[in-house]
Design a protein around this nucleic acid. Structure first.
Lengths: 236, 236
DNA sequence: TGTACATCAGTGAACGCGCGTTCACTGATGTAC
DNA sequence: TGTACATCAGTGAACGCGCGTTCACTGATGTAC
């Protein structure tokens, strides 16, 4: 395959992108489960059967959207971590830089967020392709805590006897170099982070939380504490 | 209206219940957005138009299911709090008694849980009737912390400067008798509790957390700490 | 450089399906006198 | 206690709609010789 691609191939990638864009637009307007191949085709001025040249079924289109969304979110998190690392600030601040970036992406793409973290779409089960992209935010948080740990800026959170075995198992899977209690706290914080976001995005904070920026910053700052991140005496 | 109701009225409440039961059954089988009046009617051996004698539209049926689910969940939480209070145990244990009851209900009714805490159903917006029932779990948690506070078993969590104003506002709305920092931590813990549940129920813990009972108990035990609940020297 | 053939994007019609909601109706249950 | 009328549950047909997917096809783009 040459780098100068033929007209056909170029058209194919372009139209594939256009289909996904339009599908995303409809997702934003309608929600995940009402996304329809026919409506996408109609909007693109194509006949519905033409989409089958690009996606073998509606579910494959959904999968592509999910993978793209996980990747976009993961990249937002990784970018935030990288720039926070550049500033060499304290680790709790780096943590909230990542969580705020995740939140910013979610607020900017609420329906894609719902596709990832809302109720599973009925009749659809996520294929293997999604698990890599799905883990990018979690891996970013693990990486950040690992760095803090190496720098001596992570205390080990308390861990009860009942959860010790599971914590050890999780640590073995996810980060054998970190203390099990840290990993357990990290996994919980990861889920809790998205709990805050889902409540904000799905309307549970309606008439409860108003200054959501401040609230979220405080709550995820506390999450940083629960995973053990500390600011050193040199302010880092 | 006499206490001995006529045959018509008795039939009406019975059939209304039957419709909701069947709708719940289909919710469990299919998910929220594919719930169909026609399918419910079919399963009950009625003609679809007959349902309009009981619910003026599909959305009203959905609302009834949502209200029932919030009430069932709220009652589970309240019952757990009441029996934990009877045992006079330490407050952190009472807290996890409530969270574990919430989780037990969610695991037993995953699709109803998704209806309440998953992505909003497209085209449906929750009416005013749902806000009372929706707040029962939150109110239970507030009540528990209030009791601990009165008993001197609640420390005041840290609160940064940025979030102080919002915390004061929330406290004014929700629990003027509690310190703003406590209320802010409580609202965050409430959202984070459901973050843990949503991740478990919506599949994000797949291949990540295995001993979920232990994991959840530890995580919500930590949540109790973040809202300031302590065990006194008398073990309460 | 030109020709023959293979590949593939997109068309248009069709299949078979389910949906929410409306409406005029029948017949049973309740109520007022 | 009996009769006349009102209320209401449930019927069955219809309206108008959208959906995913298949299939035989046309015509343009690419490739091998």
């Amino acid at each position: 395959m040459s780098t100068v691609r033929g007209a056909r191939e170029r058209a194919r990638t372009e139209i594939t992108l256009a289909i996904k864009d339009e599908a995303r637009r409809q997702l934003a307007a309608e929600g995940a489960s009402t996304l329809s191949l026919r409506a996408v085709a109609r909007e693109l001025g194509m006949v519905s059967s033409a989409l089958y040249r690009y996606f073998p079924s509606r579910d494959e289109l959904l999968t592509a959207l999910i993978v793209d969304a996980y990747d976009a979110l993961g990249e937002a998190a990784e970018t935030a971590r990288a720039s926070a690392a550049g500033s060499s600030g304290p680790y709790p601040a780096r943590w909230t830089a990542v969580t705020c970036a995740v939140r910013a992406w979610a607020l900017a793409h609420p329906h894609e967020y719902a596709l990832l973290y809302g109720s599973p779409v009925p009749g659809y089960s996520a294929p293997q392709d999604t698990v890599g992209p799905a883990s990018r935010v979690g891996l970013t948080l693990i990486g950040l805590v690992r760095e803090a740990h190496a720098a001596g800026r992570a205390e080990v959170p308390p861990l009860g006897a009942t959860a010790a075995a599971e914590a050890a198992r999780m640590a073995g899977d996810l980060a054998p170099d970190l203390p099990p209690a840290t990993v357990a706290a990290l996994v919980a914080a990861w889920a809790q982070l998205f709990g805050l976001l889902s409540f904000e995005l799905f309307g549970q904070f309606h008439r409860v939380v108003e200054d959501r920026d401040a609230f979220f910053a405080r709550a995820t700052g506390e999450l940083a504490r629960t995973v053990g991140l500390t600011t050193g005496e040199d302010g880092r």
